[in-house]
Nucleic acid binder design. Structure first.
Lengths: 150, 150
DNA sequence: AAAGATACCGGCAGATCCACGGCTTATAGC
DNA sequence: GCTATAAGCCGTGGATCTGCCGGTATCTTT
């Protein structure tokens, strides 16, 4: 892996990010490559760690978590174990980013109801001071990276 | 669709969220179902919109975006078109949530370098006042929902 | 008790994946 | 200029998986 991606690699990434289950022959058709050449490209991208996996996306509301919130957590000391334990226990915490700035962590939390969210925030508030924002809507659902303009 | 998920459905969701390319026969083996029964379950989940798609995950740093930041945007008026145009144009914006609270939008932004991030924040700052936090690390990368404790 | 609905299983035809060897092009060294 | 090596691509064939079919067991409905 020359650590550089050409236009074909980016085209492959765009397709598999859009549809992770696209057959290799169809993928090859879209990027103008044979199926076997496409296979080699994909395997190389996987082996290099560029593609880290394939995952199904699940509608949170449809599985009983209609409430989504962003919680920022300001940590007084440097005790990280309690947070990690909470991440292990509370599956309602979907994502956790450690950031610069006044708030050390930014969390994405799913809840079944407002009381449920309140309870989750209470648990987080035992670790530090929290700031909670409810998500109205995903204006832009997560999308992966694209090829930069040249 | 009875609009309710049983334990087997949740087991299927857990597996396909972990590995979106798992063959149906192997999936069936893991959830103690035949391949055809598994197929029907998965199709039902897809048709009901519970599973919204399958996507490859890409390592941002490996494709040239080592800098990740959370930008909160406070919007003075209610002009949403400029933001939507920016979302269409700037693929470096990976996600955008509209939230309650002082800051109307929370964005996740990927950049190739600090100057690049600065430029992106400058563009966002033309729309409103911004608060930017650089992401040190993904303490917990996004994980999907799990079955609630009963 | 019979009819219907639901969920499951097994089997088969067709599609897909995967590993192999051969072909072409690019590069380096002599 | 020529050869050796490597990288990338292609086509093929066997193994696997998927999609569709009918059949069975359980539960509900009438």
């Amino acid at each position: 892996m020359t650590e550089i991606l050409d236009a074909t690699d980016w085209a492959i990434l765009a397709e598999v990010q859009r549809d992770g289950r696209i057959p290799l022959t169809e993928l090859g058709r879209r990027v103008n490559l044979s199926a076997s050449a496409t296979t080699e490209r994909v395997k190389r991208l996987e082996a290099a760690g560029v593609i880290t996996g394939y995952h199904a996306a699940v509608d949170l509301a449809k599985v009983g978590f209609p409430v989504l919130a962003v919680v920022r957590l300001k940590y007084p000391g440097s005790q990280h174990q309690p947070l990690h334990r909470l991440l292990d226990e509370r599956f309602e915490i979907l994502e956790c980013l450690r950031t610069t700035g006044d708030d050390c962590y930014t969390l994405k939390v799913a809840a079944a109801s407002m009381p449920h969210l309140e309870q989750l925030v209470n648990e987080l508030a035992r670790l530090g001071s929290t700031t909670t924002n409810i998500v109205y809507s995903q204006t832009l659902p997560y999308r992966g990276p694209r090829e930069p303009r040249v």
